[in-house]
Amino acid sequence: MGKIVKVTAFLLFAALVLGACGNLGKNADKPNREDATLVHENEKEGGSLDTGNAYGFNKFDLDIDVDGKDTVEASYEMDRNLEAEYKNKLAGLDLKEDEAMVKLDEMFIDIMFTKDTSQEEAIEKLMTWFGLDTYTEFDLEVHFDDGTLLDFEDKK
């Protein structure tokens, strides 16, 4: 009788183990949970160059006036959704969203702003990038992921 109890216990144990591992319910084709995603703390809003998710800032706003007229306007904001705009009247460009991001990406990668960028350096890099020699008004605002704000305004 001892062997029958052991065999019965083993079969019961095996049935419980196999039953717990199976997915034979009416929702068997549906995943039980979403795949886990590893998210770094600084990737939650905008990311950083270190994580390869963004540019180190989540908001960029640039306005350059030449001879008192809007010449260049560029804006980028990464909150829950991406918003991008790029206007360059000298080049005849008025781009939005994905098309704007192509130009903005080129500029961001080439210029590489950091929270330690000085006003003179930012103006020089952007004026060179846009091929401008002079301006009447220059306004740049960059919000970095760590909360640092660059806010440069200059009028001539």
Rank of each mutant, 00 (worst) to 15 (best):
M101L: 14
M101V: 08
M101P: 00
M101E: 06
V102T: 14
V102Q: 13
V102M: 10
V102L: 11
K103L: 12
K103C: 06
K103Y: 08
K103F: 09
K103M: 14
L104D: 02
L104C: 09
L104R: 05
L104T: 02
L104P: 04
D105L: 10
D105M: 08
D105P: 05
D105G: 13
E106A: 14
M107Y: 09
F108P: 05
F108L: 10
F108H: 09
F108M: 13
I109D: 13
I109S: 13
I109N: 15
D110F: 06
D110E: 14
D110H: 11
I111V: 15
M112G: 07
M112C: 09
M112Y: 13
F113E: 06
F113I: 02
F113K: 02
T114H: 11
T114K: 11
K115N: 10
D116R: 07
D116I: 02
D116E: 15
D116K: 12
T117N: 04
T117W: 03
T117R: 05
T117I: 07
S118G: 11
S118N: 07
S118E: 08
S118Y: 07
Q119L: 11
E120Q: 15
E120W: 10
E121Q: 14
E121F: 08
E121V: 13
E121P: 00
A122L: 09
A122N: 08
A122P: 03
A122C: 11
A122Y: 04
A122E: 03
A122W: 01
I123A: 12
I123P: 05
I123Q: 14
I123T: 12
E124F: 11
E124V: 09
E124I: 08
E124Q: 14
K125W: 07
K125Q: 13
L126F: 03
L126Q: 02
L126D: 01
L126V: 08
M127N: 04
M127C: 05
M127W: 03
T128F: 10
T128Q: 15
W129S: 10
W129I: 03
W129G: 02
F130Q: 08
F130D: 02
F130P: 01
G131Q: 04
G131E: 09
G131C: 00
G131H: 06
L132E: 03
D133F: 00
D133S: 10
Y135D: 00
Y135G: 02
Y135H: 00
Y135T: 00
Y135Q: 01
T136L: 06
T136C: 04
T136V: 03
T136R: 03
T136M: 00
T136A: 00
